[in-house]
Amino acid sequence: MEFKSCIHGENIVKKYKNFELNIPSVDIPRGFATALIGENGAGKSTLLDILAGIRLDYKGNLRFFDKFNDRDRETNPEVKNRIGYEGTGNYYLPSWTIRQGRDIQSLLFDSFDEAKYRDICKKLDVPDDDNKKIAELSDGNNMKLKLAGVFARKTDVLLLDEPASPLDPLMRDKLCEMIREYLLLDEGNKSVLFSTHNIADMEAVTDYAIIVENGTVVESGFTEELKEKYIIVKGEKKDEEAAAKVLYTISSNNYGFEGMALSENISGLSGLDVVTETPTLSQICVAVMKHNSKLYTGSIL
C-alpha cells in the first residue's frame, strides 16, 4: 500500500565497539501507529534516539514531514517542537519533585500545555502530590508522567521507547486508546512510532510494523499486508521433512510440526496433509525474529 512518510531515513549508520546499526532505508508512515520490534540489543533504542535527535553521532540522511532534514531538526525550533520523544532512561532527574518536572517541561517546550498535563496526570491517576520526588514513584507512574509530558504538547509525531513495558495491562489498554485519540486529532497527519516487546498488547493499535534484528531492518509493512504475506502451517510428523524445505521457520515436536511460510511459497506444500492459519502480528514477529536471530533454536535445558 502506498503511503506518505512522516519520517524517512536513508543509510543510517551508527558504529559501536561490538555493534553496528546500519539501515539502508526506513519509513515511518504518516497518519499511522508504527511498532518498532526486535530482540534486546537489536538497535531499536539507537534508531529512536537518532530519529529524535537525542543522539547526533550518526551518519545518514533523515527527512521529516517531507520537508526538513536533520539539520533543520536541530536548528529550526518548529521541527523540534513537532516531535515528541519519550525515552527509557531518566527523562526526569530522580531528585526532582513532580512540580519541578512540570515546571521544566513548561520552560523547555513552547507548546507544553500545563492544564492538559495536569488533566492527563489526574486521569491516569498519578499521585497528586507536587512535592513527591520522582525517584519515589513506581516505574508505572514514572512512565505515566513521561507520557503525560509528551501528550500535553502540540506535536505531529511521537517517538516512544518501550512505553508499554512498565505499564500494567489496564494501563497498556489505556495507552492504546491514547494513541488512537492522538491519531484522530488531525486525521491522517499525526503519526506515532513506538518500540515494544509487548506485541500482543499493542497489536490492536499497530498499523505498521518495523522489525529490527542485528542492527538492520529485516521486515516492515502494514500489519494487514504482513498477515497476507505470511501463513502458519501445521502438519503431521510424516510430512515434516518435505515441509521444512518450503517453510520460513519450523519447530517440531514429537507429534508433528508447526511453522511459518511465505504465502507465495504455499503451493510447494500441495499434496501434504497440512492445516494453514492466518498469523497474528505476534506470531509473524516471532517468526521473523527467529529466522534472523542468533538464539539457539532447540531445547535450552
Binding site: C176, E187, T206, E224
Partner: peptide
Amino acid sequence: PSIRGLAKELKISVIT
C-alpha cells in the same frame, strides 16, 4: 465514520 474515528470507537488499528 472517519477511519480513525471508527478505529478509536472499535478499539482496533487504523489499518484494519
